[in-house]
Amino acid sequence: MKKNDQEITLLNSDNVSNKDIEKNNYKTTNVNILLNRVRLDKKRTFKKRFIFSIFLVTVISSLIVYFVI
């Protein structure tokens, strides 16, 4: 009779430990990865703004040259 009781308690303890393991499995992201992503995003936006500004200056200067001459 004792063996049956012992098996039940062992099974119950396994279930509890499995639940604890599942709760502790959080997805974490490395902070360095996030910071690198922010840096890359900043570089991209700077490049886009720079290219757009050069394009805008070129268009405006070409229009000025066209209408003045």
Rank of each mutant, 00 (worst) to 15 (best):
R49F: 06
N15G: 06
V38A: 05
S62M: 06
T9F: 08
N24V: 08
R44P: 02
K42R: 12
I33G: 06
L63H: 05
R39V: 15
N30I: 13
Y26K: 04
Q6F: 07
R49D: 08
V57W: 02
S53G: 03
R37H: 07
V16S: 04
N25V: 05
Y66T: 00
E7Y: 01
R39W: 09
D20K: 08
K2P: 01
F55M: 13
E22V: 00
F50C: 09
R44E: 10
T45W: 09
E7L: 13
Q6E: 14
N4R: 07
K48H: 04
I51T: 15
V31E: 13
T58M: 03
N32M: 06
V65Q: 05
L34R: 14
Y66H: 04
N32W: 03
R44D: 08
D41N: 14
T45I: 10
Q6A: 11
S62R: 02
N36D: 15
V16W: 07
S62P: 00
L56S: 10
L40W: 06
N15L: 13
I33N: 12
L34Y: 06
N36T: 15
D20E: 09
V59S: 08
D14V: 01
V38D: 11
D41E: 14
S13W: 11
N15W: 02
N30Q: 12
N25I: 05
N36P: 03
N30A: 12
T58D: 03
L56Y: 05
S17V: 15
S61K: 01
I21F: 13
F50D: 04
N36A: 11
I60L: 14
I8F: 02
Q6N: 07
